[in-house]
Design a binder for these strands. Structure first.
Length: 837
RNA sequence: GCGAGAGUGGCGGAAUUGGUAUACGCACUGGAUUUAGGAUCCAGCGCCUCUGGCUUGGGGGUUCAACUCCCCCCUCUCGCACCA
């Protein structure tokens, strides 16, 4: 007998065409069903889908499809994070235009996504490089500017020489550019910033609300990044006041050690340095020191092992309580942009200060004693930073140091010399980029009016496409007169347009909201659509965005809420976050240079999309990394073949039943009863794993077990109508449960089973608890905790019957012979443990 | 150093509330079918000194019972790290 062979390509293209034609996955804003918004991080249109995308989107698609079957109105959109540097580099290399390159890539990648059968609502597709998208971002910028949440300042910035642009702090990884790994330099530049620090407290506090839905480590990383510290600011008066400046403020987390201060250290970049040293005999030496520190590589300078170096400025400050003269130093380890750029030096209780003091022979003064034992400042070999009792601290002597922190802060405040305060590690977000392929920042520079925001009615400020791409990689915008030359929106005279563009992370900070009303023309959002769809119920993506994108999006959500664009109760964009693991090959990340790239297109060609999806989901739990295995995907392919053959070989007895439609009456014979029981058990297990726990690997394994059982049962099962119904119902269950994972073959076989409406529109099956119970239960028998055998007891036997059956078992008898039974533990239906000595 | 996660067969991994450790898959072995097969179906498959004993990184503890709970230690992965 020749069976029709499984041909994934014809099946898959057929159903993909069907979905497209019927608009199967478009969704309406509305309230007739509970909503569910599942979103995967949108890709950068590099031109090719890689295995990481396939896995990410396969996970999202299973969630989307299974939630639809569970009766939710599911929003599952896709789009393109389309601005960014690679387009410019590729344009230079391939002598094309970033715009052409980007749109070509989008077309190619959209085709590949469609070839994988993902259930997106393509009508909501967005591309961030389109003016219809970024015009709203320009509007947000203007509103943020109005509110003081966007501002311009000159400061040392992270500069990537290879990318010819600045980077935000979050985009510098180990002193290197996050994108190209070049060493980042420091450059003084005037740049646009978003005041993310204004939301520091809220960003930190609201992490608590995410604890249920986000991975702990992502929350920990964000908490770490925000880095709130509690302490005090302390004002030290200058011994000799400067023009208009009579004191220097420091921030400390240890106000309790204030009496141990023996020096103050300023960052070499501190604004007062030049004034302080003006009349100092060794001013030139200090200037040379400052020069050296500033030139030093950021990575080296921030390295903990780098030698701490400093130099005396010749100036002194006065202790706020004792009035003692304290020398003012500069130190290469002091950060200019944290706190006030000045720290108090307490060598006895801070390891850094200790090393510094020893190096430059500065005094060490012990003011905290660990539980009464005194330490001598001469013999100390390292700082003591633990808890203790304050000593030599004036009125505070004798206090516990925790208590002392509060007391000192209060006394400082009373004396007008400081107060309790907090500091954040988080810095404001530099959003200026000296690049072409991005959204223009909508401001102009006017000789008369200065920095002038564009008028909202002039938006969008369209990025000109007719520019000459420069070979050296620099932005062509400053050399494009038609763009630069403009009218001042305020006075109407000729002015110069800002040529920096927005960091592309700005686009991805709000795209999830735009999907709710992607085609809206006269406003960024439809308030009703946002209220209905947001927040995103399930967000899925790589953990590499734990800080960058996820922090920026959280910030934007709060800022847009306060600007009135987002619903007032909406503070967090993503309720649940799944960070999927990487797809590796031979133990390491796939990369062209290692030559270990597995191409999704090749795999689809060889096995079909269903097999590729199945393997990505079955190989490992979603959040874990997994190693691509050639024999692994063979196994996935084999399983799909097994379903196909089972169906084809048994089709003569298949009836158009739905999942779990065979009744208890249909299951008369022991084999039929058994198969129906396994069917219902599978539905129970698979539902929990796929829908509630997102454990797709075990969900799939449970269906594999059912398929294996069907292979073994089919010979024993007769051809009576009732038995055929039981078998058909089980087949329908297999197809229904797997349809979110391998939708094409399931739709195909569903149709061949005789159904006229698609499987995607079916409800998720419900199991009958009564059908899952066994007639006979296998009870484990233990003697002193060791397994000695099993015994079968009828379902519903009570504890004493179970105990009796256990004691009567020969296996148990053999082991308790000659011993006294002390205790019998009975776990009903599961186990009997006999304690005998 | 700080924070988070992980450690189970030859391999990827199961075990949801403390109750038969190793589900499912891969690899391997054998059988059936076949002209043949790298296709398919069936079976076997933790380790050992094998009528028994041992086994979830190591060591202790709680318990009738521990992969699971508690304490100590080891190893690996990721993130942060001169933030005063």
């Amino acid at each position: 007998m020749t069976e029709e062979r499984y041909n994934p390509h014809s099946i898959e293209t057929r159903w993909q065409a069907y979905w497209q034609e019927k608009n199967s996955f478009s969704c309406e804003n509305g309230r007739h069903k509970p909503k569910y918004y599942v979103l995967e991080m949108f890709p950068y249109p590099s031109g090719k889908i890689h295995m990481g995308h396939v896995r990410n989107y396969a996970i999202g698609d299973v969630v989307a499809r299974s939630k639809r079957m569970q009766g939710f109105n599911v929003l599952h959109p896709m789009g393109w994070d389309a601005f960014g540097l690679p387009a410019e580099n590729a344009a230079i290399q391939n002598r094309t235009h970033p715009s052409l390159w980007t749109y070509d890539n989008i077309r190619a990648m959209r085709d590949q996504l469609k070839r994988l059968g993902y259930s997106y609502d393509w009508a909501r597709e967005i591309a961030t490089c389109r003016p219809e998208y970024y015009r709203w971002e320009q509007m947000f910028f203007l509103r943020l500017l109005q509110k003081g949440l966007a501002y311009r300042k000159k400061a040392p910035q992270n500069w990537c020489p290879a990318c010819h642009t600045v980077l935000a702090n979050e985009q510098v990884v180990d002193g290197q550019c996050w994108r190209c790994d070049s060493a980042v330099e420091q450059k003084d530049l005037t740049q646009w910033f978003l005041k993310i620090t204004a939301y520091g407290d809220e960003l930190l506090q609201d992490l608590a609300a995410l604890e249920k839905g986000w991975p702990e480590r992502v929350i920990a990383m964000q908490r770490n990044w925000i880095g709130k510290s509690f302490g005090a600011s302390v004002t030290f008066d200058l011994e000799k006041p400067l023009d208009g400046v009579s004191s220097i403020d420091v921030f400390t987390t240890r106000p309790d050690t204030l009496f141990g201060v023996t020096f103050l250290t300023l960052a070499p970049e501190h604004a007062l340095v030049e004034q302080l040293i003006k009349n100092y005999a060794k001013a030139d030496e200090v200037r040379a020191f400052v020069d050296r520190a500033r030139r030093m590589d950021r990575l080296d300078r921030q390295n903990e092992t780098t030698e701490k170096e400093g130099i005396f400025t010749g100036a002194y400050v006065l202790h706020p309580f004792t009035g003692e003269k304290i020398p003012l130093w500069l130190g290469n380890f002091v950060l200019a942009d944290y706190g006030t750029g000045a720290v108090m030096g307490v060598p006895a209780h801070d390891q850094r200060d200790f090393a510094f003091a020893r190096k430059y022979s500065l005094p060490v003064r012990v003011v905290i004693a660990p539980h009464g034992e005194e330490q001598s400042s001469e013999s100390m070999t390292e700082a003591f930073s633990g808890e203790g009792i304050m000593l030599s601290s004036g009125q505070f002597t004798g206090l516990g140091n925790e208590e002392g922190k509060k007391a000192v802060a209060q006394a400082l405040e009373k004396a007008g010399k400081g107060r309790a305060t907090t500091q954040f590690r988080l810095r404001d977000w530099n959003i200026s980029r000296q690049r072409y392929w991005g959204a223009p920042i909508p401001v102009v520079y006017c000789e008369q009016c200065g920095v002038v925001p564009e008028k909202e009615e002039n938006l969008p400020i369209v990025l000109p496409l007719d520019v000459k791409i420069r070979e050296d990689g620099r932005s062509p915008l400053p050399d494009t007169p038609s763009f630069v030359a403009c009218m001042c929106p305020q006075c109407g005279k000729p002015a110069r347009r800002e040529t920096d563009t927005l960091d592309t992370f700005v686009e991805s900070s709000w795209y999830f909201a735009r999907y709710a009303c992607a085609r809206m023309e006269n406003a960024p959002f439809d308030a009703d659509a946002l209220r209905y769809w947001l927040p995103v119920d399930q967000y899925i993506g790589g953990v590499e965005h734990a800080i960058l994108h996820l922090l920026y999006s959280r910030f934007f959500t709060k800022a847009l809420r306060d600007l009135g664009f987002f619903p007032s109760g909406l503070s967090e964009p993503f309720t649940n976050l799944l960070t999927q693991g990487m797809v590796l090959k031979d133990g390491s990340k796939m990369s062209k240079s290692k030559g270990n790239v597995v191409s999704p297109a090749d795999m689809i060609e060889k096995y079909g999309a269903d097999t590729v999806r199945l393997f990505c989901l079955f190989a490992a739990p979603a959040e874990r990394d997994f190693d691509w295995s050639d024999s692994g995907i063979e196994g996935a392919s084999r399983f799909i073949g097994r379903i196909w053959r089972l169906f084809m070989e048994e089709r003569h007895r298949l009836k158009p039943l739905k999942a779990c439609q065979a009744t208890a009456d249909d299951a008369q014979t022991p084999e039929a009863r058994n198969l129906r029981r396994r069917e219902h058990r599978t539905v129970k297990k698979c539902s929990a794993d796929m829908n509630d726990r997102f454990q797709f690997n075990t969900a799939i394994a449970s269906v594999m077990e059912l398929v294996n059982a069907m292979y073994l049962t089919r010979e024993k099962l007769g051809t009576e109508e009732a038995e055929c119904r039981v078998f058909s119902s089980a087949i329908a269950t297999v197809l229904t449960l797997l349809s979110p994972v391998i939708p094409h073959i399931c739709e195909e076989l569903w149709e061949r089973l005789g159904h006229s409406s698609p499987l995607a529109e079916e409800c998720w099956p419900l199991w009958d608890e009564a059908a899952t119970t066994e007639d006979m239960l296998t009870v484990a028998l233990q003697v002193n905790g060791k397994l000695r055998g099993t015994v079968e007891i009828p379902q519903g036997a009570d504890s004493s019957e179970q105990e009796a059956a256990a004691l009567a078992s020969p296996a148990v008898q053999r082991h308790i012979e000659g011993h006294t039974v002390h205790k019998v533990v009975v776990v009903p239906g599961k186990l009997v443990n006999i304690v005998a000595r």
